[in-house]
């Protein structure tokens, strides 16, 4: 699955007039995702190889939420995922790319979605534990922070990656969970939000990561809920061309991916209704390329699979008819996390 953007643009920027009644072009999006990997004649296909495993997770998740889980061939997907795995249990973005937490989390999410932990053990002896140990090796046992790779910077995003992957593998206890939770708490700001490291400014992407990790560890009680949910609700743009859309920080532009980071955060805090769901729906739908499929960051820009999955996941959280329910903690189909986690 490549991350080639375009060919189309979302919404009115593509030169089309938006219809009065917006709706989700499910078949178009399915086709868009399905054909992404055939675009090897585009330079960008090759330039985005460092995102391929993430791209596969985004595409697969979008297809599941769109109600077409069988569009990608299971065996082919698994062949690709395992071709990205390293001896040490980590996964790279594509074959020959170094192992990193970002891709390891995507790999585990794909395996979970395809109910393929059995395949993991068949194909890689002790595979589950090997992945767990790769992740555990990246935890700083003094501070609780988690690194992206052996060279890597600490970032609260990687705590979420680790917690998601380990909990899906039923291996969360192999790391020091309370220590990482304390690290997250040290990243909290007076606005209730969280940054990438202690002292860093609150950012909706990092907030999603921290709330996801706190949810998995059952530690949401440490959150300044009303303060944070208030800040998150202020991410919704109330006037101008981006009306209804959400931004990532004060005074920044709206972007469809924040439909996910902000809305899922509000959902985890049971405050989803603190933004205008109908207006957000309209904003996401206005970012579709209604001819070739795909969703862009905002109307007029190129579509890509990243914004497609987060747009669809946002619509799912808003209860859009015909979509599978999404899990706000994992950004995976809820039916799958329920099957694995038993809750």
């Amino acid at each position: 699955m490549a991350l080639v953007s375009g060919p189309g643009r979302g919404g009115s920027g593509g030169g089309h007039t938006l219809p009065e009644e917006l709706h989700l072009y499910i078949d178009k999006h399915v086709h868009y995702i399905q054909t992404l990997d055939t675009r090897k004649d585009e330079y960008e296909y090759w330039l985005t190889e460092h995102l391929r495993l993430n791209g596969l997770y985004w595409g697969l998740t979008a297809l599941h939420l769109l109600g077409r889980p069988d569009v990608l061939k299971r065996e082919e997907v698994l062949d690709f995922v395992f071709s990205c795995m390293h001896e040490d249990g980590g996964f790279g973005a594509a074959p020959g790319h170094d192992a990193h937490m970002l891709y390891t989390a995507s790999a585990v999410q794909i395996l979970a979605t395809l109910d393929a932990f059995g395949d993991l053990e068949t194909r890689v002896c002790g595979g589950r534990m090997r992945i767990g140990q790769f992740i555990a090796s990246l935890q700083d046992r003094k501070t609780g922070t988690i690194h992206g790779d052996k060279y890597g910077e600490p970032d609260t995003r990687f705590i979420a990656c680790a917690f998601m992957a380990l909990s899906l593998l039923c291996l969360l206890p192999i790391i020091n969970v309370p220590l990482s939770i304390r690290y997250i708490q040290s990243c909290a700001n007076p606005d209730g939000g969280y940054g990438s490291s202690p002292g860093a400014e609150s950012h909706s992407g990092q907030i999603f990561a921290c709330l996801s990790a706190l949810s998995i560890a059952n530690a949401l009680r440490t959150v300044n809920t009303d303060r944070l949910a208030g800040w998150l609700s202020e991410r919704q743009i109330t006037s101008g061309p981006g009306v209804g859309g959400l931004n990532g920080r004060p005074e920044k532009k709206e972007d469809v991916c924040y439909s996910w980071w902000v809305l899922s955060s509000l959902a985890m805090l049971s405050r989803r209704h603190w933004v205008d769901g109908e207006a957000l729906k309209r904003f996401i739908l206005s970012c579709q390329d209604e001819v070739n499929g795909g969703i862009s960051d905002r109307p007029g820009d190129m579509v890509d699979v990243f914004h497609t999955v987060f747009g669809v996941a946002g619509l799912s959280l808003l209860g859009y008819e015909g979509l599978e329910e999404v899990d706000p903690v994992y950004c995976m189909p809820r039916s799958i996390t329920r099957r694995i986690l038993g809750k």
């Binding site: 202020e234 919704q236 405050r271 209704h273 603190w274 933004v275 205008d276 207006a279």
Partner: peptide, 11 residues
């Protein structure tokens, strides 16, 4: 003035 966040004001 801010009906889009009416859920918040109601709470």
């Amino acid at each position: 003035l801010d009906p889009m966040r009416s859920g918040r004001w109601k709470d």
